[in-house]
Design a protein around this nucleic acid. Sequence first.
DNA 1: CCTAATAATGATAATCATTATCAATATGCT
DNA 2: AGCATATTGATAATGATTATCATTATTAGG
Lengths: 160, 160
Amino acid sequence: MSGSGGPTALMKEALNANAQAVLEAVRSSHNHPTALEIYEAVRKVRPRIGVASVYRILHSLAQQGLIRELGRSDEACRYDGHIERHDHAICTTCGALLDLPVDVRLSEEALRMAAQAAGIELHSHEVRLYGQCAACRQKAQAEREQARQIAPDPGAAEAE
Amino acid sequence: MSGSGGPTALMKEALNANAQAVLEAVRSSHNHPTALEIYEAVRKVRPRIGVASVYRILHSLAQQGLIRELGRSDEACRYDGHIERHDHAICTTCGALLDLPVDVRLSEEALRMAAQAAGIELHSHEVRLYGQCAACRQKAQAEREQARQIAPDPGAAEAE
DNA sequence: CCTAATAATGATAATCATTATCAATATGCT
DNA sequence: AGCATATTGATAATGATTATCATTATTAGG
C-alpha cells in the first residue's frame, strides 16, 4: 500500500497499444465495420492480437464512450404484433425494448430531406430513445447503497 | 391449366393453421418476444411444429406486413467511430446501415415527454429511416426488366 | 538483475440464434 | 387411387459472440 497515489486497476483511461489500434481502426473506417472486420484490420498492425481481445476492447471503448455500437446482437431478433408505426425505448443497461405509448412527432419535410440525402426511398421510420429503464435504475441505486456500506467513500479526499 | 382462376403458389394471403398460431402468439404477447419464445408458445397449440417453420413463418408474416421485426441479427453488431449524436438510414433490402448527413430535428420537449412515458432516464436518441437504398433500387429495377423479357406480362388482363 | 505476484492476452472451445438441407408428409389434381 | 408438387420439421451447419484457461507481459520487492 504505497502512498504514491498508485492507480492499481481502476484507472483505465490510458489505452494500451492494442486498444489504440482498435480505436484507430474504428475511427478510420467510414462504413460501419463489424467486430470481425475490425479484427482483420487491426491484425495488419498488431498481428498477434486475438478475436477475444478485439471484442473485449470494443466493449471497453464503447463503455468509455469513445465509440458507439449499433445493433446489439447479444439479444435475438424480436417481433412485434403492433404494425402501426411507433417508436421505442431501449434500456442501455439490460437491453429491454419498450414501446413508446406516445409518438415523437417529427416533420414529414425533415424526413423526406434526410431520406433524399441518404439516397433511400423512405418506407418507414422509427425514433429510438436510449437510457436506463426504471427497473435498472432501482437496481443500480440499491447496489450503490450496498457498496457504500461495505467500502464507505474510498478516495473521498480527492478533489471533486 | 384449369380456368378456375387457380392460385398455384402466388396467392399466399390465406394463412394456414401454423401461420395463424404464430401470428396469434406474436399478437397476444405484449412484450417483444424472440423467435424461440414464440416457438415455445406456439408449441402448446401445435406441438408438432419445428423451429425452422417458426422462423419461416415469422419472415413470411413480416414480409406481408402482418408483424414487424425489431433488431435484425442476421447482421453482426457494427461499430461507429462518430460519437456525436446522429441518425441512420437502413436498407430494408440489403441491410446496409448509412449515416444520415443531416439531423432529423425533433423537439426536446417531445423527447422528454416520451422518455417519461416509457419510464426511462433519457441518455440519447436516434432516428432510423427504413427504405431501399439506391443500389438495391437499381438492382431490383434491372431484375424487373429481365423478368419482363422472359415472361412478358403474366395476367396483364387483370383489373388494375 | 532476478524472482514472485498479478494482470492482460490470445488460442480454443462453448454457446446461442439463425439458416440450410433433405427426407417425410401433406395437398391437389386427374 | 396414384402421381406431382409444395410444405414441413428434425437435424446439421453456420456465424457471431463469449467463456475458459494456460501463457505471456508487467510490476514490485529483494
